[in-house]
Write a protein that binds this DNA or RNA. Structure first.
Lengths: 192, 192
DNA sequence: TATATAGTGGACTGACCGGTTCACAAAATG
DNA sequence: CATTTTGTGAACCGGTCAGTCCACTATATA
């Protein structure tokens, strides 16, 4: 029995995730990934197979650690009446925070949507799935927030709100004011 | 007096625009731009100064030839009651068309929003300006569509509709059904 | 000590990148 | 024909890329 793996895979993936989030898949270089993870390329290739393999792990990490925790309260069996308000308030706070990755780089997945990597089936499926998950979660939050709402109106509002999220994330690295104003519109719609 | 420039600058920029639209700034290579424009790199550099100079011209071309013509009816002094419905119907048709660039690649500017090039001030300013222009135009269309609407509601609806546009464009290269459904939601909101 | 595996560092492969240079050809005018 | 400008093609510069290879070191267990 030989040497045991010394690094934490999740920790390495988090570091790599930050690089992909900032630069995108294509512009994230091996030297930069080496620096961020603290591993040499031999170790990276041994653990993940390829740069693309590391990217796939980063996408999964992003969904599990950044996206889904924020959607959790909406997907809870006892989702509260204000869970959806909290979701947007939390999102707004994240976008407003001066030194957060969300604030500077928007959404890793939505950024990938506009990049060449989106042509990879697995990547576009992941992004499409994220959007559906977002809509579905918001729909549950809307139902809890407005118990009497009919299905058609609820799904429509879910489409609108998820689109406001996408727009805000897209604008995050372009114009902070417009991004925050977009989230504010979501909150206004919910408070009407 | 010597040789006259033989190529049409606008035509060259259109060809280059198609390459940047499909690949993004970073992944658009000089050889690919040479192939698409039919010019050698010497001529490209002579006419545009750099790859970035060509990209800037492509962005201007995109705004002037793709974006603004579609917003024109909304910005007209005698904007019709159904101009905004026409806008979304036309957008939907473009996204539904199997072999159009919009259908395959979404929006050149919004794709750039998630790319490293967005860190260039001039690029992010162009994207922020496009979003404001879109909102402003939609606001005019909303006013014509619903003459009695108050300012607050109109601006809110403009934010919502422009976000639906952004979401649809982002989803265009990811999931055609979701992209079209997003535009449908905009039309439903207007027909309520 | 032997065995087995993780991890490194750097050289290497083969390819490509944006941008520059320049001799030469093409084309327009005088 | 001379002059001037556009446009080409290819070599070149200096650099970078993802991925491979391998001798070597480190580490854990028996």
């Amino acid at each position: 029995m030989g040497r045991v793996q010394a690094f934490e895979t999740d920790e390495v993936v988090r570091s790599a995730r930050a690089v992909f989030w900032e630069h995108g898949y294509e512009e994230a270089s091996l030297p930069e990934l080496e620096r961020a993870t603290g591993l040499s390329r031999s170790s990276i290739y041994h653990a993940f197979g390829s740069k693309r393999g590391l990217f796939d792990a980063a996408v999964a990490s992003y969904l599990n650690e950044i996206i889904r925790p924020r959607l959790l309260p909406l997907n809870s069996p006892d989702v509260t009446e204000i869970a959806i308000l909290d979701y947007f308030t939390t999102l707004r706070a994240a976008l407003a925070q001066p030194d957060s990755q969300q604030s500077h780089h928007g959404c890793l997945l939505l950024n990938a949507a506009g990049a060449p990597i989106a042509h990879e089936s697995a990547v576009s499926v992941a992004i499409a799935g994220y959007r559906q998950e977002l809509k579905s979660s918001l729909s549950l939050g809307i139902a809890a927030h407005r118990p009497g709402i009919d299905d058609v109106a609820r799904l429509q509002l879910a489409t609108v709100l998820s689109s406001l999220v996408i727009a805000a994330m897209t604008l995050a690295r372009i114009d902070k004011e417009q991004a925050l104003a977009t989230v504010d519109t979501a909150l206004e719609l919910l408070n009407n």
